[in-house]
Write a protein that binds this DNA or RNA. Structure first.
Lengths: 347, 347
DNA sequence: CATTAGCAGTCAATTGTGGAGAGTGCTAAT
DNA sequence: ATTAGCACTCTCCACAATTGACTGCTAATG
């Protein structure tokens, strides 16, 4: 495949991504300044069509990329665009107020992905069971209620109230024991050990055993991951423009609402490097009519963009990669560093 | 207006809500078993049209309700349908696992409204400033970090970490002072008083003043209300069926994303009784092409359904009212009551 | 006076037709 | 390998004709 053929392919993909219109041999000459005749271009197009990289919508129409064409484009032809200073600045700005609440941070990130790309943005929360325990605090609220707060590397992970009656001294004892034994352990281990305590390995006081059972249960229930999605109404027009019927397009949106199914899929796709999954490359049937651009940011969390197959991959790669790395940095820094101090709040 | 005219109106509204098709005089006779001729019905229709209750889409088409017609229907003709046992049971089921996290409960409720109605469901969170302080706990996590937890009538309302170095004794002292002075006060008062402390009315230790400033700021930032919306992709087909253009329909969805504008509007509309706001009765321009059915459930919170103007009002009223009252009950019960105990969890 | 039968008039929806325009494929020449 | 030129294909748009569903009106009826 010679250089001119590559150029023709690139022109077709670029043009179709930009305008949504098939590109004809004549327009290609005019707009991309080739110094050959349109017939030559047509011959090249025929070659590309035989290789399955472009196609026509009907016999006498211009050419547009096939999914294989997009794949080829993404793998070989795309030049990774840098974000403009302006965009970079906007991203920094929106992370300026460091939130302590991790879920809020993730929601914000999804919003950022969506608004910068013009498609839907999503963030799959980290697997908290992979993070390490910083400390667990027990607070006596009144006679029969105790507040349990679990703090991990990523900040406050969970709080819950437990109905149990313990003296301050007892609380102190438990607290010291747990923190000494479990600090630095991964939360899934913590959960396992809480279960052992609950079964009586530590104390034989049944009330206490209950407390641990509750703690374990809390960890279990709330360590569920969340999938934050933002801006999918912006996605809809793009999908419809591609000729998708409304019901199909809504299926795409609905699958994102089903966090269980989509989460595990997104995680299985992701890698530390940003990558794309185009149209029918998707294993999830409902997503076969759109494309994903995503990357992992740590602790098995994933960020990405969901758009039409005719997506501006270059821009999507740039945005996802920049924001993903940003998020990774923020989360990897100890959360103690990020906390607002008065001085910072004021400026 | 005689009984037969009312029957004709009701038939037209019922039929249009069910099928989306205008009703002709002939079909009306056949389906609703009137013992008069079609000409008579046509005369009645003419009367109703003159009163602005029904209209035609073009000169030789059947009749369909105007917005005034829906309003009349809702005010005088709608018979409030009871939810089926099955539906009631489903609602109870989904509230069976009492969540401690209020936001999770609200999200769940929005989901319930959406899935039962087939339209979009929303829940505006309570004004936390109207709830009363149960207690504030300070926990020393390590040398320089203190965890602050605010518990109100509705459960845990806020937690944050503050960067401050205090001895356990000092913490104990502050804690006792605050809880004694402020328990039972509304959170907006608490915020105000925190501000006074911050300005030095209590201690003159600058570090402490900073702590209170932070507390105040936290309360301020996080007492923002949230608008939980679920299932608005289900709303879209309904809106489009009504002949709304996609852009207009998306405007409707977008306005719900703008929590600030829509929240205050929804609150201003709501009353303790379930009520409807139909089409152009809405003050918010973007909502003029759809209808709201909503009610207040306490602490200025609102639940409701957003649907097309051609909505099944009878069903929407039943669902909103049932779920709204359910939610009110759950929140009004002291949160201590709802907490899971082992016994309940296990069964 | 309310009701009815019958007929004329209105309009949407559907189908078919024809011409213009855009673009390709092929062939023969360079 | 490239090019010019021509025939062919298919979409898109506008226009017309036909069909069918309802209504409005009028004159007759109990």
């Amino acid at each position: 495949m010679d250089d001119r053929k590559l150029l023709v392919l690139k022109a077709i993909v670029d043009h179709y991504i930009k305008t949504g219109q098939p590109l004809s041999s004549k327009t290609l000459l005019e707009d991309y300044g080739l110094r050959v005749s349109s017939a030559t271009v047509r011959n090249d197009m025929k070659y590309l069509e035989k290789r399955g990289l472009i196609r026509k919508e009907y016999s006498s129409a211009g050419r547009l990329p096939t999914e294989r064409g997009y794949r080829f484009f993404v793998d070989w032809l795309v030049q990774l665009s840098e974000l403009t200073r302006h965009d970079q600045h906007a991203i920094m700005q929106s992370y300026r107020f460091q939130r302590q609440q991790i879920e809020e941070l993730l929601r914000q990130t999804a919003f950022l992905l969506a608004s910068m790309s013009g498609y839907a943005g999503f963030v799959l929360s980290p697997r908290l069971e992979e993070t390490r325990l910083e400390s667990i605090a027990f607070v006596k609220l009144d006679e029969e209620n105790v507040l349990v707060v679990v703090v991990s590397e990523l900040g406050i992970v969970e709080h819950c109230m437990i109905r149990i009656s313990l003296s301050p001294d007892e609380l102190q004892e438990i607290s010291a024991l747990i923190n000494e034994k479990l600090r630095g352990h991964r939360l899934d281990e913590v959960r396992r050990e809480a279960m052992q305590f609950a079964q009586g390995d530590g104390w034989h006081d049944p009330t206490l055993q209950n407390a641990f059972a509750l703690l374990k249960e809390t960890l279990e229930r709330r360590l569920q991951r969340r999938l934050h999605v933002e801006g999918f109404f912006r996605l809809l027009p793009s999908l419809l423009e591609e000729g998708l019927e409304l019901t199909k397009a809504l299926e795409v949106l609905t699958i994102l609402g089903d966090a269980d199914r989509s989460s595990s899929y997104l995680e299985s796709l992701s890698s530390p490097e940003v990558r794309a999954c185009i149209g029918s490359e998707n294993d999830l049937r409902e997503l076969r009519s759109c494309s994903l651009v995503l990357m992992a940011y740590g602790f098995s969390g994933v960020v990405g963009i969901l758009g039409p197959i005719r997506m501006d991959y270059s821009k999507a790669f740039a945005i996802t990669s920049y924001i993903g790395n940003r998020l990774r940095t923020i989360l990897t820094l100890s959360h103690w560093e990020q906390m607002p101090t008065l001085a910072r709040e004021v400026d």
